[in-house]
């Protein structure tokens, strides 16, 4: 089996450039949506907790 090559330092950036997300124009926007959705879920948990406490 071939020994895998050593990764280069800017590999993540290169891979990012290779692959565009299927929706929206960049992965940054998709990550932002995931984190915003998560923040909304946490907010809903907070409101749920206080509504029935």
């Amino acid at each position: 089996m071939a020994i895998p090559p050593k990764p280069s330092g800017n590999m993540a950036e290169n891979a990012d450039a290779d692959e565009r997300p299927p929706i929206l124009s960049s992965w940054k926007q998709i990550y932002a949506i995931v984190l915003i959705l998560h923040a909304l879920i946490i907010l809903m948990f907070y409101l749920f907790t206080h509504a029935y406490a």
Binding site: P4, P5, M11, D16
Partner: peptide, 8 residues
């Protein structure tokens, strides 16, 4: 993920 994919 980009590292794992690049190294196949």
């Amino acid at each position: 993920l980009p590292i794992y994919y690049r190294l196949n």
